[in-house]
Design a protein around this nucleic acid. Structure first.
Lengths: 243, 243
DNA sequence: CATGCCGCCATGTGATCACATTTTTGCGGG
DNA sequence: CCCGCAAAAATGTGATCACATGGCGGCATG
């Protein structure tokens, strides 16, 4: 009864990372790509069984994801994806806009031709994925595009904060994209790339903000249709697969 | 050989929180108030002995603080306070400015007379602490003032991000304040309170940004004087007190 | 006296176990 | 047929243990 909740492919036997780091990476990706349903039961033993590890690495990974606000520790001491509300969603978008616009502007001095070329390559992946309706690739490449830009100056204090925001939005982004397939938008990444080539910081800020806003504006309406997504939902009865 | 690294007073026997939550709270406060020296050895067993708990809660608390970027996991798998560089410090301040200015502006609609009164009370505590050179109280009340404002609308997605930034700055803020005792500054909190009373969002943004910038501007010079604070330093040989 | 090597000790990681609490299930009565 | 209560299963929390790794000092050697 093993679910496809996590990517079983990655993580070889000679992975230099600790087990809890591997578990963390896999769970993080699952959340980011919306593979975990809001409301789904997330138990230590269940995840451990699914991932083929003991409980300890899972415990540590869950704790870390709680700290990043990707998961929420309830009063029952159980962990879940935090339910989304309109207010919280609005907060998350506002935080993304100010943080990512600033991060992009601050990355400008470090933008090289090579970086622009790599961004263009990533943008091509995004466009292909969009045409093919491949949402996993689309979401992943989209984040890679932004992260590549913000990390141009090397490790930045902005990136972890932004990543936390993505993790909080991820589960609902995927759900909204399923309902709203084929939404036509202006290619904001092209605008951003043009701004980068011109070294036009202000235009870059505008492009990034526009990309964030109309990339997810329609989620708001999804939220309105089903108030407090994830607040109710299938509680448990999905992780009984173990002896 | 127990250090005064953590506040031993809090945390009764009938604390409803789990042990790891108590440990987390105490470590977090220690970091925020700069009671942990950058470069100081932070071992699981050592902290557990200091706190009178087993290793398990400490492990989980450390993991959570690593996720919040308050601590850093080195390649040795050992944990430390991340060394500060001028670039990182600059990033942290920039992130604080955009996040806190936005958080303050978004809190404006929820500002009541009662909140303003409570902020004034907190500001009084800050001024007293500054006069008395009581840095612990000063830092704590300062954060309480800001958190109170940003949390006016209830739980905000901004607050955890901002808290992470405070935790990253904390250890060095304290160090810089020790060297720069008695720095005269305009009372930006008064300006912020005045803006709140007038419901002047733009003035509030300006006051918050000014408060952040000149509250810690002098730390930059401290950093320049001792390049890469915490990069070198007393490595370990301080947590041998156990057996 | 300086330097490189070896062994010991401390540490992080992961596994397993016991216990208290919560959740689910099953049964009996209304 | 529905509701409530009790038993049973499941879960989170914390403790302890085994093991591999890394750091440190002592020791022998040049």
């Amino acid at each position: 009864m093993a679910t496809d909740l996590v990517d079983e492919t990655q993580g070889g036997a000679d992975d230099p990372r600790t087990l809890h780091q591997q578990v963390l990476a896999r769970l993080r990706q699952s959340i980011l790509l919306g593979r975990i349903e809001p409301g789904q039961a997330l138990t230590i033993r269940g995840l451990a069984a699914d991932l083929g590890v003991s409980a300890m690495p899972v415990r540590e990974a869950l704790r870390q994801l709680v700290a990043e606000r990707a998961l929420e520790l309830m009063d029952n001491r159980r962990v879940r994806i935090p339910p989304m509300t309109i207010e919280r969603f609005d907060d998350l978008i506002a935080a993304r806009v100010v943080l990512e616009a600033e991060a992009a502007a601050r990355a400008m001095p470090y933008v090289t031709e090579g970086l622009i070329a790599r961004l263009e390559a990533e943008d091509a992946v995004i466009n292909e994925a969009e045409a093919a309706r491949d949402y996993d690739t689309w979401i992943g490449a989209n984040f890679a595009f932004h992260a590549m830009l913000y990390g141009a100056a090397g490790q930045s204090a902005f990136l972890p904060l932004i990543e936390s925001l993505w993790l909080q939005i991820g589960p609902f982004l995927r759900r909204a994209m399923r309902t709203l397939s084929g939404h036509y938008t202006v290619d904001r990444h092209s605008e951003a790339l043009a701004a980068l080539r011109r070294r036009d910081t202000m235009a870059l800020r505008i492009a990034i903000e526009a990309d964030i806003r109309d990339g997810i504006a329609h989620i708001g309406s999804t939220l309105i249709r089903s108030e407090a997504l994830g607040a109710t939902g299938v509680q448990g009865t999905l992780r009984q697969a173990q002896g």
